[in-house]
Nucleic acid binder design. Structure first.
Lengths: 163, 163
DNA sequence: CGTATTGTTGACAAAAACTGTCAGACAACT
DNA sequence: AGTTGTCTGACAGTTTTTGTCAACAATACG
C-alpha cells in the first residue's frame, strides 16, 4: 500500500521535465525543483534513462529531457520501474506468481487480484500530460520549494502489531 | 503497493473462522489451517481481539471465534489494523497528512489520493461473508495445506534502482 | 485446591529493505 | 587539455519486517 521514496522522486522529476518540455535540465536544477537530494537523483535518473523514459546529454549545455511525449508516459510505467510488482501479495503477481501455500482455493487471492487490477488500471490511465495539465503554475515557483521536509512518521493505525 | 505478511495472515485467519462460524478454534489449529507460524499468530490474534473483531476464551474448550457476523467485518477493517495508513505516500493520508515539501500545487498528490480511495473503497466493499461464499470447500481440506511455503523473493521489476 | 490447558504479553534477534552519500569513472563540448 | 556534467558501484545508517521464545494469566475440571 505504500510507494517508495524513489518512486515518488521519479514521478516528480518526470512531471517537472514534462512541464519544461524540450529544454534539457541539469541534474542540479532538477534536484532543486523537485526537492530531491541530488545524490538520490543521480541514481534515479539513469534508471529511467535505461528504461527509455528520459534521455540525457553530457557536457555543458547537457542535461535531461523526456524521451517520449508526456502523453505517452503513464504513471504505471514509472511506478513499475521503481516499485517492482504492483500486486499486494506475492501469490498474485501477474507474471510468475509465487506458488501459494494454500494454492488450491486460496480465496483471498481473488481479492488481492482485484486490488492489483484496480491499482494498475488507475495508474495506467494517467499520463504525464494529464498531470502537467493539472499542475498549472504552482510548480514553477522555486520559492515554494523552500519548505523543510518533515521527518516521516509512518505508524500503524490503531494498535501496534509488532513488539 | 504491498501488504505485509501479518496482514495476509490476519485475513486468512478471519476467513477460516468465518467458515467455521460459531465453533471456537484453538490457536494451534488455526495456525495449521492457515499455514501461519503459530508464534506469529500469537501476536496477530490478540491485536484483532483488542480491535473487537474476534473474541477469545481461555482454558480447555477455549479458542477464538468471530466477535461479529462475517458480513459485518470488512476487509478494509482488517487490513487497516495491520497495515496502518493505506495512502501510497505520506502526504495524502486521510488523517493528519504530513506536510508536503511541495505543499502548494503538489500535483502528484491528487493521483495518490485517487489510488488511495480506489483501494479503500474496494477493500471496504468486501466482507468476510463474501469471501466465505467464494471459498466453497477447498479450504476445509487440511491436506491441501501441506505444500511447503516458498521463500519470498520480492525484487523490482526491471532494473535495480538501488546499488 | 491443584493441575492441565489455553490465550497474553513483551523482549528480542536475524534478515531485509530503504535512504541517502560519496568517490571515481566516463563522456561531451569548448 | 580542461570544464562541465552524467554514470556506476560501494557503502553506512536507519527503519521495517519477520519470526521466536519464555514467562505469565485465566479458565475448566477433577
Amino acid at each position: 500500500m505504500w510507494v517508495s521514496r524513489r518512486t515518488d522522486y521519479a514521478t516528480r522529476a518526470i512531471l517537472v521535465l514534462a512541464l519544461e518540455e524540450g529544454r534539457p535540465m541539469k541534474l542540479e536544477e532538477l534536484a532543486r525543483r523537485t526537492a530531491v537530494p541530488q545524490s538520490v537523483l543521480e541514481q534515479v535518473m539513469p534508471t529511467m534513462r535505461t528504461a527509455g523514459i528520459v534521455r540525457s546529454d553530457r557536457g555543458p549545455s547537457g542535461g535531461y529531457r523526456l524521451n517520449k511525449k508526456p502523453e505517452e508516459i503513464t504513471l504505471e510505467r514509472v511506478v513499475r520501474l521503481f516499485q517492482g510488482q504492483l500486486a499486494p501479495i506475492s501469490c498474485v503477481t501477474r507474471h510468475n506468481p509465487e506458488p501459494c501455500a494454500l494454492s488450491v482455493g486460496c480465496t483471498m487471492r481473488s481479492v488481492w487480484e482485484e486490488v492489483r487490477d484496480a491499482t494498475i488500471s488507475l495508474l495506467a490511465g494517467v499520463t504525464f500530460a494529464d498531470l502537467a495539465g493539472r499542475s498549472d503554475g504552482a510548480w514553477r515557483e522555486p520559492a515554494l520549494l523552500a519548505i523543510a521536509p518533515a521527518p516521516a512518521a509512518r505508524e500503524p493505525a490503531e494498535v501496534a502489531a509488532a513488539g
